[in-house]
Amino acid sequence: MCLGIPMQIIAIDGHRARCQTGGVEREVSLFLLQDGAIEPGDYVLVHVGYAIQKIDRAYARDVLDLVGTLLKDETRPHA
């Protein structure tokens, strides 16, 4: 449950954001980051649909590689 997925913010509407990663788009809540500055183009670490921390672009790429290889092993979605 604790693996997060880095996503890039495309658009923000209140506390909700459209985010994408690897061509997949998702709605993500920014409610847990409401006290910090955040804007489209930023990368965030998303856990169960909520951004839990802002991350830098290079690090996001590293984690996406890792998550990609882990998910390839797994046949079903997990929370």
Partner: peptide, 16 residues
């Protein structure tokens, strides 16, 4: 069910 990483989003959902 979950640890802090999951319960913080659950708290956010409830509070929002």
């Amino acid at each position: 069910a979950g640890f802090e990483t999951t319960m913080a989003p659950v708290a956010a959902m409830i509070a929002e």
